[in-house]
Design a protein around this nucleic acid. Structure first.
Length: 971
RNA sequence: GCGGGUGUGGUGAAAUUGGUAGACACGCCAGACUUAGGAUCUGGUGCUGCGAGGCUUGGGGGUUCGAGUCCCUCCACCCGCACCA
């Protein structure tokens, strides 16, 4: 009875389907456990073997938890809005809705082949109107809310309006415009338009301006991805930064809570660190430098102690003051410089430290403490979006400022005495401040306080906490995304759920209703003036009340709350019933890549906090534990090719003969190996020195991985694939094989190294595939795919099968197990249980292999040993487990079994083999009773001949005995 | 540039708390069985040396009786950096 995996896997998939074994209920007496994967964007390329890595890990853990007695929610869905589908539509004219639907079908099909335990009834697709209705609804919650800094939570905007009517904004200063004071009288005297303009400064979803990549030639806005080397990826047209009115989410109000909330999460320190750095909290001062009696520059600094070392100010080139302060004399060069900066991305501006650029405005500011005149420059290394968009430059204490001062010959004030050597800035935060008026002689911490106090006292500065975090841009000038539930009246945006602007009864013309459905378009061309394609649909844009917003939401909108929808996916009355969210609570285990560290994971945390603040859910962190999976890289194959015309060889279609040379023989020739050279010349050279000719001018070219078996080229198949390969000469190894060069890189279509899981599953089965992906290595590190290695895991499953089945059928007996068999079983159960808790799936697979090797050697076919193993292997290899479970006469699914507990009493060994070291070097092994103490063994060890030899008659200094581990003798 | 991660045999890796480095596999070598083998099974396999032995966890330094593991420093590669998702 062979291990017939295609038949077994098909049978059990069908069984699971028919019996609905993966259906999850929100009602259960069992404790709940929520396992979630970061859902995929369904791209046209389909899944490759790298994608399911995390899905397999989470599936194993979900099944394990189920066997451990939990009610497990383990859903899957699709993050279906996005740029690639729209790009594809632009190129092929196929509607994104159609391609997305097709891609989702393909993904589902691929995922099902691997045997995941998803409850597909709960699947969500972010581009479904039934889903994005609630994305829009949550957006409106954000739009209708503000952040109460005193209470540290979001509140409905109506409550702010009530406060404004009563007391103005005196207790609730405007978060994004300093010094904007409104009294209750002013507020009530405002027109509705003016009132809403003020409210816009408070809303959690608000409108502001932001720079986008504008491509004049394409008439559209481009994503960072679409700009390559300063020109558009499509067509290579010039691009520039352009200010546009955009929606934003006021995530900066949540900066502190996003930091403190990290302490409650079981994430890796690296992940938390990345989020902390992204939020980038720093404390310091905002200092005012007056340029004229009416104009002043505000800078943010974390080092007020260095205030006397300020030799110049630098404004971001986009800074609003640049136009007003630039002198007539400098205007031309300033304009030229600003044009240059417009062509530069933020990345380039930050990364280019070797190339120092900047421009003097001609203006001077007055130092608030020394009253010296300080020149004001602009430079690209200062970014408009960070701090106040202006810095005070202290060359003696900051590397970039120092380089800038040297480059432009600006005199440097030394405020660190001997600590500053004149060549490099002294940026340490220890030492004494010198040459700094009243700060001279103070330590840095002391000077920081003193400087701050002095600045505050004269009204030239204030304490300030600054965040690197910026408000999140939430508009895209695109088609394939959620439409905004926003209508403009007189250019003032209203939520479609507001009754204020409706012309008739609520719901008239469908204006009030959610979802605002994404209308069908036939063209994906941008609208006039760079708006999204929706602007081309006047019948959609124009409503009786006003014009609809024509931008759409970004990719992270739908993914910021999807984990909630799985809890109650079909609810038409609310995004998820409170009873459902109260039952499932946070995601207990969230599996995904580190590339989402600061995007998705930060936005969904914010959305969760907003929903919590507004009372819609009962928890304010979405993901309790985070498990990061590494990437599976591709393994590319190369041939070394040289093109030479050699008269005796027929040229190929290009008129050039291609010579390919196998890797090993090529390396020998490169090393000058005479045998190899004469072999090649004799076999292929027609009497000439062909080897030298070829190697003097060859280059590697990529070939598709499917024409290679491991590293061995399948020459005949390659020749059939592409005629360019047929009329060529293949210089093989003496044994007739042809070995390719290999290299590890990203798995991608363009590198010809993509491996499709469908093929692997067809060849080896889903159980083998699942176990092999885990066997490759720790879940969180990246590693290359190697199809060859899968054989070992497949062999293991066959060997496992043979413990249960012989040539004639099932061979499991009811004999009583012996000591050795029980030890193997319980040792394995223990290891698996421990590995599972620390997500060490690769070592679990190894342990199963060790176990099967041992049981096979013992000739064990006993139910008492094998049945617990079947349950234990179920999370890894669910199909074979079901087959063996039923083959042993059990009814129902193995998924309803209980995970077997191990017992230590079966594991204990009576003797332990100790490594004996002399001076830390292991010289011999000796066995002692497991309970032996140092006194029991020391004489025996010292008497040992080998030990004697290595001690070389030197006196013993110390005898180190670590029970159960090792022995070390120091001489 | 900033932030994060990873470096152990020919390859993927193991070593969980500072205690016998290389488990388990792939590949390779030798052999058994077979009409056959890309099936199955057995043995060997870090490097070096005839051997005793020596060397070995990216490089260098340190702490320790003992370091892959802790500390310092340097190097290489990978990921993210705000409109890819």
């Amino acid at each position: 009875m062979e291990y017939n995996f295609p038949e077994i896997e098909q049978r059990w998939k069908q069984y699971w389907n028919e019996k609905q074994v993966y259906k999850v209920s929100n009602e259960s007496s069992k404790p709940k456990y929520y396992v979630l994967d970061m859902f995929p964007y369904p791209s046209g390329a389909g899944l490759h073997v790298g994608h399911p890595l995390g899905y397999i890990a989470s599936d194993i853990y979900a099944r394990y938890k189920r066997l451990k007695g939990y009610n497990v929610l383990h859903p899957m869905g699709f993050d279906a809005f996005g740029l690639p589908a729209e790009q594809y539509a632009l190129e092929t004219g196929q509607h994104p809705a159609d391609t997305t639907r097709k891609n989702i079908e393909r993904y589902k099909d691929q995922l099902n082949k691997i045997g995941f335990c998803y409850d597909w009834d709960r699947a969500v697709t972010t581009s479904d109107p039934g889903y994005y209705k609630w994305t829009q609804w949550i957006f409106l919650q954000l739009f209708h809310s503000w952040y109460d800094c005193a209470a540290q939570r979001a509140r409905p905007i109506t409550e702010l309006i009530a406060l404004l009517e009563k007391e103005g904004n005196i207790n609730n200063p405007c978060p994004d415009v300093d010094g904007l004071v409104v009294t209750d009288e002013q507020w009530t005297s405002y027109s509705e338009e003016e009132q809403r303009k003020l409210l816009m400064h408070y809303r959690l979803a608000y409108q502001g301006n932001a720079a986008v990549w504008w491509c004049e030639a394409l008439g559209t806005v481009l994503a960072n991805d679409e700009v390559v080397n300063g020109v558009s990826e499509r067509g290579g047209h010039p691009v520039e930064r352009k200010q546009m009115r955009q929606w934003f989410l006021r995530i900066t109000e949540y900066a502190d809570r996003l930091l403190t909330g990290l302490d409650t999460l079981d994430w890796t320190d690296a992940m938390k660190e990345m989020q902390r750095n992204w939020v980038g909290k720093s404390t310091g001062a905002e200092v005012r430098f007056d340029v004229s009696p009416t104009l002043s520059v505000h800078v943010f600094t974390t080092r007020p102690d260095t205030i006397f070392g300020v030799d110049f100010l630098v404004l971001a080139p986009e800074h609003a003051l640049v136009d007003t302060i630039t002198t007539a004399q400098q205007k031309t060069v300033i304009d030229e410089y600003r044009t240059y900066v417009k062509s530069r991305s933020e990345r380039e501006r930050m990364a280019d430290v070797k190339q120092i650029t900047g421009c003097f405005t001609g203006a001077y500011a007055i130092h608030p403490l020394s009253n010296n005149l300080i020149p004001v420059w602009i430079a690209e290394y200062v970014l408009a979006g960070y701090g106040t968009g202006a810095i005070m430059a202290v060359p003696a204490g900051d590397d970039r400022d120092h380089a800038f001062a040297q480059h432009f010959n600006i005199p440097i004030t030394n405020i660190f005495g001997d600590l500053y050597n004149g060549d490099n800035a002294y940026s340490d935060k220890s030492g004494t401040i010198m040459n700094s008026g009243f700060l001279t002689g103070m330590r840095i911490a002391e000077a920081t306080e003193a400087a701050l106090n002095a600045l505050v006292a004269i009204g030239a500065g204030k304490r300030r906490t600054n965040f690197r975090l910026r408000d999140a841009g939430f508009s895209r000038q695109r088609y394939w995304g959620e439409p905004f539930p926003i209508v403009y009246m007189n250019d003032v945006p209203y939520g479609v759920d507001e009754e204020r602007y409706t012309t008739g009864t609520k719901g008239a013309n469908g204006v009030n209703d959610l979802p605002v459905e994404l209308p069908h378009v036939d063209s994906y061309k941008p609208g006039p003036e760079g708006q999204g394609p929706l602007a081309n649909l006047p019948e959609w844009v124009n409503t009786p009340a006003g014009n609809r917003e024509t931008n759409t939401m970004p990719g992270y909108a739908g993914s910021s709350w999807y984990f909630l929808r799985y809890m109650d996916p079909h609810n038409g009355a609310t995004f998820a019933d409170r009873k459902a969210t109260d039952y499932w609570q946070q995601v207990d285990l969230y599996v995904g890549g580190t590339e989402h560290a600061v995007g998705h994971l930060l936005y969904s945390r914010m959305w969760t906090k907003v929903l919590f603040d507004l009372g819609h859910i009962g928890f304010d962190e979405p993901f309790k534990k985070l498990l990061n999976q590494g990437m599976i890289q591709g393994s590319s194959r190369f041939l070394y090719r040289s093109n030479y015309s050699v008269p005796s060889i027929k040229p190929d279609s290009d008129g050039v003969t291609n010579w390919y040379i196998s890797k090993n023989i090529r390396e020998l020739i490169l090393k000058g190996d005479k045998d190899a050279i004469s072999y090649v010349d004799a076999q292929y050279g027609n009497g000439g020195t062909l080897s030298e000719l070829i190697l003097s001018k060859d280059a590697p070219i990529r070939i598709p991985i499917e024409y290679v078996d491991g590293v061995l080229l399948k020459i005949d198949e390659l020749k059939k694939w592409n005629p360019n390969f047929s009329d060529s000469v293949y210089i093989c190894e003496p044994d007739g094989t042809f070995i390719c060069q290999s290299e590890v890189e990203k798995m991608s279509k363009s590198k010809y190294n993509v491996v499709n899981p469908d093929d692997i599953v067809a060849q080896y089965g889903a159980d083998t595939f699942r176990m092999y992906e885990m066997f490759l290595g720790p879940i969180d590190v990246s590693k290359p795919w190697d199809t060859k290695g899968i054989e070992g895991v497949h062999r293991f499953l066959k060997k496992f099968w043979r413990l249960f089945a012989g040539d004639q059928g099932w061979i499991v007996t009811d004999d009583a197990p012996n000591e050795a068999e029980l030890r193997t079983l319980h040792k394995t159960l223990k290891k698996i249980s421990e590995d599972m808790e620390r997500f060490s799936f690769n070592t679990s697979v190894s342990q199963f292999m060790i176990c099967v090797n041992e049981l096979a050697a013992l000739g064990c076919h006993k139910r008492a040993v094998l049945q617990p193993l079947v349950v234990a292997i179920t999370p890894f290899a669910p199909h074979i487990a079901e087959e063996l479970w039923s083959g042993m006469g059990n009814t129902g699914t193995v998924l309803d079994a209980a995970f077997p507990e191990y017992e230590d009493r079966f594991i204990a060994e009576s003797t332990i083999t100790y490594g004996v070291s002399i001076n830390g070097k292991k010289r011999v092994e000796m066995a002692f009773a497991a309970d032996a103490e140092q006194a029991d063994i020391e004489p025996g060890v010292l008497a040992d001949a080998t030990v004697q030899k290595w001690m070389e008659n030197k006196p013993m200094k110390k005898f180190i005995f670590v029970k159960g581990k090792m022995i070390n003798i120091v001489v």
